[in-house]
Design a protein around this nucleic acid. Sequence first.
DNA 1: TCCGTCGTGGGAACCGGTTGCTACGGCGTT
DNA 2: AACGCCGTAGCAACCGGTTCCCACGACGGA
Lengths: 353, 353
Amino acid sequence: MTRKSGVASRSTIRDVAARAGVSASTVSRVLGGVYPVSAATRGSVMRAVRELDYVADARAKAIAGAGTPTLAFVLEDITGPSFAHMAHGVEREATRLGHLCLVCSTEGDVHNELEFVEMMRSQRAAAVILVGGTADTPAYRERTHRMADSLASVGSRLVLCGRPPLDPGAPVTVIEYDNEGGAHTLVAHVLAQGHRRVLFLGGRADHTTALGRERGYLAAHRARGLTPDPSLVLHGDFTRDAGHRLMHQALADGLEFSAVVAATDMVAAGALTALHEAGLKVPDDVSLAGYDDIPFARDLHPALTTVHVPYEELGRLAVRTALEHTPGAPDEHLLLGTHVVVRDSVGPGAVTA
Amino acid sequence: MTRKSGVASRSTIRDVAARAGVSASTVSRVLGGVYPVSAATRGSVMRAVRELDYVADARAKAIAGAGTPTLAFVLEDITGPSFAHMAHGVEREATRLGHLCLVCSTEGDVHNELEFVEMMRSQRAAAVILVGGTADTPAYRERTHRMADSLASVGSRLVLCGRPPLDPGAPVTVIEYDNEGGAHTLVAHVLAQGHRRVLFLGGRADHTTALGRERGYLAAHRARGLTPDPSLVLHGDFTRDAGHRLMHQALADGLEFSAVVAATDMVAAGALTALHEAGLKVPDDVSLAGYDDIPFARDLHPALTTVHVPYEELGRLAVRTALEHTPGAPDEHLLLGTHVVVRDSVGPGAVTA
DNA sequence: TCCGTCGTGGGAACCGGTTGCTACGGCGTT
DNA sequence: AACGCCGTAGCAACCGGTTCCCACGACGGA
């Protein structure tokens, strides 16, 4: 079996041209495909290409106007199952549409985010997709508006995906999913089972995703004429460890409740084992619900009642919408629905509370 | 609050130069940072840069020799928890080392893989990391060897991560983790509990990761002087659905066994619910173990005994090793160890079988 | 006072492609 | 037989940067 020489030659289009005995433009045209070239010429060019194992430098093509467009995806941590599903949707749709896909995880650091976005601006990425909730402060809006503007100024487009929208006027595409509505429906379901003291295991207190779900929790109570005990909402973050720790603490503190709604399936998972460790049965002793419907939810024991979020679709939609956007057209703002998936982890609660 | 004009201007270095009243080379030098430039000149250039909101085109820089290097990460599906952790490690280390990180999921299609690698070659990616087991056929070796050569010819480097190594001579960096050893230790642990008929819920029959674990399963038996019943190894794939379906089927078929070892925690999760659905208690009626130690493993009930694989470290190591490789230096081949994590899902089995 | 040197900035070539415009040769018409 | 057209290939400009090499002015030392 013969191989090409192992030399890192990095041959250029002119090398190919020389070898084929034609000019560089001809090689470019043969490779480009559309321009009329005689069969003989095409043949010798293709042979030279093969012999040299030549590929055109994509950066050079890009700068000259041809070249593969790119799109960037920025999230806090790709390790979370819901983020991973969004990432998958983004990546699939991007390659379907012939785009390359750059990724960056910020670890929640604003500085990283800024830096990466600037880099994407210099890469002339077709779109930059920012994913996941965050604190919705004036500083956030100001900073993000500025990012949107500066991306727009190089022909790129900012997409906010499950992240707080900006003031109107910012050149931005927003794709959200209904945190409040989903949580409302879910908690209504729990309340309908007769539970009256339901613990809410939330995310960080200022995180919009967590906050939306918390609002739904509150709204569901009010809709039933109930006023929830403020001491029943606990804040942490979105990991299973936080869920475990919070649940453990709540139990140790002697908090009274007959059901717990977690801001996330991950949190619910941690909470569930804390419950088990305390010798409590779910749903007999206490009911439990999550949010996200990650694949694992149905393998918890009992299978977790949760609300389904179409994460992969969200990712697909984000890239499609962004890429279809024509400059000057109105800014899109989509809101995707969710639905609750009833499984086995919430049971009836004593209506007398 | 005033904003820059919304016009997509895409200003060039010459625009900046004109505005600052200097030449393009000077702009390049002040932005470059090292070349001596007078404070006054630097000032006016910086002001022009700010006013125009200029960023140098990264592609142009790249072609001129400066520019941010890039590295690519190719996997089958980023949705799997272990892959996601590797991706995280890769991404972290890449950005730590100042590299951009491109991602592509192949959906298991060889054609996608080939196409993407060719694209990375044209991008002049510093390294291309191929992740995850696959069928180790002559075609695979031939094809992958060719990829390695053609990447090397443009100064890039192929990394095989948890993927079968090639014949010596291929310019490739290999990072593996010990599937056989981990499975051996795990199964030995199960056998030591007295189990004699242990079901192996494997991945695809030709998949190297699955195969390695299966070999460990076999070896552990032989090391104890046992010859496992071939009908006890079942093949599927690495999803929780496969685990669920296989387990369900095994039960329906009346297969006899007192323990099951799954090729993956995901598979174990599916198997666990199938066991529960059949009214079987784990570990009282049947023991269960997994592989990978994904975060969720400890939230299954009972908490899953499994083998820990340092996925994130694997990813980090892949990029570090690849990037440190100097052309001509010998090819690296690393093998990472694993260790079993004993939790609650395997209990004693009747020694009389 | 004159000269050498250092500090700065500009011109132009180059990185590796694409593409508009032009030139050339062969063919079919009239 | 002459004219013109069409198909094909090359030249050169351009994309947006970087950097080598050189020139110019000011300053200090002899």
